[in-house]
Computed example of a mutant assay.
Amino acid sequence: MDVLSDAIAAMRMGRPHSGLREKFAPWGVHFGTHGGAGFHVVLQGSAWLIPEGGEGQKAGEPVALGPGDVVFLAHGYGHALVSEPGVEVERFDLEEDGSWPDFPSPAARSDGRRPDTVLLCGAYRLDRARAHPLLSELPAVVHLPARVGSHPSLRGAVELLGAELADPQPGSDTIVSALLDTLLLYILRAWWLRERHGSGHPTGWAAALADPSVAAALHAVHDDPGRAWTVAELGALTGLSRAPFARRFAGAVGVPPLAYVTWWRMTVAGRVLREGDAPLRIVAQQAGYASEFAFAKAFKREFGVAPGRYRKVRVAG
């Protein structure tokens, strides 16, 4: 499995939501903190993003947005979108299903005036109880300015999504949902590529995925999490002996190789329990445990509850 795709799949819940918004200056909307992630794309005109900090963090600086700019708010911190700093804002919170509220967008005007700004906004529901470190280390605001020739796949996804939302046709619900998932991957890929090539010295998970040895080991673990991996075996895949590989992996990922293997196994198991009805015996086998008892013990140590209880609570919630 692709590590980036897997990291998203581990956290994604429910359906993503999106909508087109037409705004007439002066305007301002504020969104409260929520458990998911959101994005905004300026399709026409301009706007300012006013980010708020998370718990114990300072608020970010205002970000000027122009046509084609994309901003991604990975951690669900509160923020405002305004025509210009200082304008009065209307406050909104996401609905229980993770959808954006239907905040006013007065498209029809008696004077025939066209909107000053057209926005494409969207939100994703995420399970932050198992936040993958690749996504956890994202900055509060990922700003991808529009530049000629930059991120053509991302721009293409934005255009397709905007077209479907502007003129829904049979099948649009499924197409929009798929395009939103695609857009999320393109946004994260664009961030990763920028981190990898921008300064020439990537750090964190950008460095981990750019390191051929570490990336090969990560791909192997994600491809077959239930395998009885050893540090020596993972190192052999990368052409490194046990000790040098372990140091290199831990330095890039932040934890020793087998600690990550265990964490990822439990994350996959939690997702299977949350989304399916496979017997615990099958889930245990997929997670690499020889017995249901051993799996249940490891799962409770990781999650604090037995797997059966975890499934009931997650499905009910």
Results as ranks from 00 to 15, higher is better:
Leu154Gln: 11
Leu160Gln: 12
Leu126Pro: 00
Val141Thr: 05
Ser105Lys: 07
Lys58Phe: 09
Leu144Asn: 00
Pro139Leu: 02
Pro67Ile: 09
Thr117Gln: 05
Arg125Gln: 11
Pro106Tyr: 06
Arg114Asp: 10
Asp116Trp: 02
Asp111Lys: 09
Thr117Cys: 13
Gly60Cys: 10
Leu161Trp: 07
Pro106Gln: 11
Arg130Lys: 06
Gly162Leu: 11
Gly122Arg: 07
Gly56Tyr: 13
Leu49Gly: 08
Leu165Glu: 01
Tyr77Arg: 14
Phe92Ile: 01
Pro85Val: 07
Pro51Val: 03
Pro152Val: 04
Ala59Lys: 08
Ser99Asn: 02
Pro67Val: 13
Pro51Gly: 05
Gly98Val: 01
Val89Arg: 13
Leu144Ala: 03
Ser83Ala: 15
Glu52Gly: 13
Arg130Ile: 15
Ala129Thr: 03
Glu84His: 14
Ser136Phe: 00
Leu165Gly: 02
Asp93Gly: 02
Ala163Met: 02
Leu49Ser: 09
Ser150Arg: 03
Leu144Asp: 09
Leu119His: 05
Ser99Val: 01
Val148Met: 03
Gln57Ala: 15
Glu52Leu: 09
Glu96Tyr: 02
Val71His: 10
Leu65Trp: 08
Arg109Ser: 03
Glu55Asp: 13
Glu137Phe: 06
Gly56Asp: 12
Leu134Ser: 08
Pro67Thr: 13
Ser136Gly: 00
Leu119Asp: 09
Ala59Trp: 03
Val87Gln: 04
Ala80Phe: 00
His75Pro: 06
Arg114Glu: 15
Ile50Ala: 11
Leu120Gly: 10
Glu61Asn: 10
Leu94Gly: 03
Arg130Phe: 08
Gly60Gln: 14
Asp97Met: 04
Gly54Ala: 10
Ala140Lys: 01
Pro62Ser: 14
Glu159Val: 14
Glu96Gln: 10
Asp97Ala: 05
Val158Cys: 13
Ala129Asn: 04
Glu52Met: 06
Val148Gln: 03
Gly162Arg: 02
Trp48Glu: 12
His79Gly: 09
Pro152Ser: 11
Ala108Leu: 09
Arg109Tyr: 00
Val89Asp: 00
Asp111His: 11
His75Thr: 02
Leu119Ile: 12
Phe72Thr: 07
Val63Glu: 10
Arg91Asn: 08
His79Met: 10
His151Asn: 14
Cys121Asn: 06
Leu126Trp: 02
Pro106Lys: 04
Leu154Ser: 11
Pro67Tyr: 00
Leu120Arg: 12
Arg109Gln: 13
Gly149Asn: 05
His79Ala: 10
Ala80Pro: 02
His75Lys: 05
Val63Ala: 10
Trp100Ala: 06
Val87Ser: 07
Asp97Phe: 06
Ala129Cys: 00
